[in-house]
């Protein structure tokens, strides 16, 4: 019983892909960089959505997985001059393993406790390069190979497309059903034969692997520097916010969430009164709260509500008798 994509979904995906493919040739390198940032958030939010939206495990620590992925790329590129694409695959693999490891203790935690533990992970992770500064470059960071804006744009969005399709394929079948069953009720899932430990750690692994690739691209997007200041807890918070704005448990809102966290700081910095670094935070924080107050289920929830309303209206227009609706 695998779901098939609707025609509208396929068409909108193709249109989005076409726009993204043409766009870099129309805009400046700076704007390409911005959109690359959006792609990075897209991948990370996609990963978090698999974990939180589908398997119901909250994580405020995805910046930590991004850090692992980013440092994988930086270390391999700096010490061994490995091909950058290969380092991304390595980041995927290493973070997959790391995610499984983090997922094991997470089996015993849920809700608030899991949020706290992953938050602590996010706060602690940037301290690791400071401690092992000889190998990981300390607060100065580690320099990976630099790449052109266009190359990075292409690679980032290609990776985003592949990972999006990958997530869709995983979630539409047996695994996705197991995830959703766990999210809705662990007891019911277990009694229907879903093996909790396997699927819960699997969700963590997949999610972390996605974040790892995002981290790898993130490092390349910041001029190839992997430094602890880039992977602060704020990054984890941004990903979480992006996922909430997108709407958990739906892949269609992810692009909106990524645009929200990727572009809003830039847009708000051009607003005259609050155009400072701190003004950005003020606008961003306010927007986050307002969006959650107005749309508790995020953009995807809004879409779903619109769809319901549209179908109702068309049903009402079919039914000639207005009294029955």
């Amino acid at each position: 019983m695998t779901t098939r994509p609707s025609l509208a979904a396929v068409v909108s995906c193709l249109v989005a892909a076409a726009i993204l493919a043409v766009l870099p040739f129309l805009i400046s390198g700076y704007h390409q960089g911005l959109l690359t940032q959006v792609a990075v958030f897209f991948i990370a939010i996609l990963g978090l959505d698999v974990l939180t939206g589908y398997s119901g495990q909250i994580s405020i620590g995805h910046g930590a997985f991004m850090a692992v992925g980013g440092y994988t790329t930086a270390v391999m590129s700096y010490y061994h001059h490995t091909n950058l694409i290969v380092t991304m695959l390595m980041a995927f693999g290493i973070c997959l393993a790391f995610g499984f490891v983090v997922g094991l203790p997470a089996l015993r935690l849920s809700g608030v406790y899991l949020a706290l533990a992953t938050f602590a992970l996010a706060v602690s992770m940037p301290q690791i390069p400071l401690k092992f500064s000889r190998f990981l470059g300390g607060s100065n960071g580690l320099q990976a190979q630099t790449v052109s804006h266009l190359w990075l744009y292409g690679v980032a969005w290609a990776a985003a497309a592949i990972l999006f399709v990958g997530a869709w394929l995983i979630l539409r079948g047996r695994t996705g059903r197991a995830f959703r069953a766990i999210r809705d009720s662990e007891v019911a899932a277990t009694s229907s034969g879903v093996e909790l430990p396997i699927y819960k750690t699997l969700a963590f692994g997949i999610s972390a692997a996605y974040a790892g690739v995002a981290g790898s691209l993130f490092v390349l997007a910041t001029n190839g520097y992997a430094s602890p200041n880039e992977f602060t807890v704020a990054l984890s918070l941004q990903i979480l916010i992006g996922a909430a704005v997108a709407g958990l448990g739906s892949l269609w809102g992810v692009l909106v969430g990524a645009v929200f966290v990727g572009l809003l700081p830039e847009v708000s910095s051009s607003v005259p009164v609050v155009g400072s670094t701190h003004g950005q935070d003020v606008v961003f924080g306010l927007f986050v709260i307002v969006v959650i107050l107005l749309l508790p289920t995020g953009f995807a929830g809004l879409l779903a509500r619109l769809r319901v309303r549209l179908t109702r209206q068309s049903m009402a227009s079919i039914n000639s008798d207005p009294g029955t609706s």
């Binding site: 909250i58 918070l237 979480l240 916010i241 701190h278 935070d281 986050v288 709260i289 959650i292």
Partner: peptide, 22 residues
């Protein structure tokens, strides 16, 4: 939902940080 409340407090975190810095 728990997640919505957590995110509002996270938004507050960023907002207060910004206001104080400002």
């Amino acid at each position: 939902s728990v997640i919505a409340v957590v995110i509002v407090t996270v938004g507050l975190f960023i907002l207060i940080d910004g206001v104080v810095g400002w």
